[in-house]
């Protein structure tokens, strides 16, 4: 059985709930009181992840931390189509991993800004927002030129990959950190497409459809 150590309002947890739902994989949620309980820094949770970060996946005793790493595991393990993470295609695999790292940068900026505004984290909010805008600019340009080549997704033409899932949540939640997406119309069109994926699920702050 799969156990997901989960926090409802976390975009990194949500991307796993979303992907598990898309893949139709059953799992148990183990809620961790991230805020205000700080349970992710508690003794019992640090035994599971010494970094004190969510999410963590436990699949029959195989324990994995890091949302992006878990996406690769879930895709390789449960996606029989091999489209979400085509392990046999070196070029696409390289590109996907490049954008998974980009997703981490989005977490470090857009998600941080949201933690500042919503959960009162102390950090350099102007730097977080400025750096998030720089990343969004790069992705918007990438997606605009992708559309010009009839490529609907970040790395691929027709079928999305885990790179799309990884980048999606904290972009959609960016306004909660004071980061407007008005200047990124290609990103907005891509988020529309993503929400049309069969078995898409929402979370607080991310609607089923709309920009």
């Amino acid at each position: 059985m799969i156990k997901l150590y989960d926090y409802e309002l976390s975009g990194n947890c949500y991307k796993l709930r979303l992907f598990l739902n898309i893949l139709n994989v059953d799992y148990d949620r183990i809620p961790v009181d991230f805020y205000p309980g700080r349970e992710h820094k508690s003794d019992w949770f640090l035994q599971i992840n010494p970094l004190g970060q969510l999410p963590v996946l436990d699949h029959d005793g195989f324990v994995l931390r890091d949302a992006q790493a878990i996406l690769t595991y879930l895709a390789a393990k449960f996606d029989a189509s091999h489209k979400w993470y085509p392990t046999g295609d070196a070029e696409i695999l390289g590109k996907i991993n490049m954008w998974l790292s980009f997703a981490d940068s989005i977490t470090a900026t857009a998600s941080a800004a949201r933690l500042h505004d919503g959960l009162f984290y102390q950090l350099d909010i102007e730097a977080a927002r400025t750096n998030a805008h720089s990343l969004f600019r790069v992705l918007d340009e990438h997606l605009w030129f992708a559309e010009e080549q009839r490529q609907a997704w970040i790395c691929t033409d027709k079928h999305p990959t885990i790179a799309d899932i990884a980048c999606f949540p904290y972009i959609m939640l960016s306004e909660e950190g004071g980061i407007s997406r008005m200047a990124y119309p290609a990103i907005c069109r891509w988020t529309d497409r993503l929400r049309e994926i069969p078995n898409f699920i929402a979370m607080s702050g991310i609607f089923e459809s709309g920009s």
């Binding site: 997406r181 008005m182 119309p185 290609a186 907005c188 069109r189 529309d192 709309g210 920009s211």
Partner: peptide, 16 residues
């Protein structure tokens, strides 16, 4: 305000 082709069906483009 926006290129026509960027206003696809069922989309809502936000601008100012």
């Amino acid at each position: 305000v926006v290129r026509s082709q960027e206003i696809g069906l069922r989309h809502i483009h936000r601008s100012q």
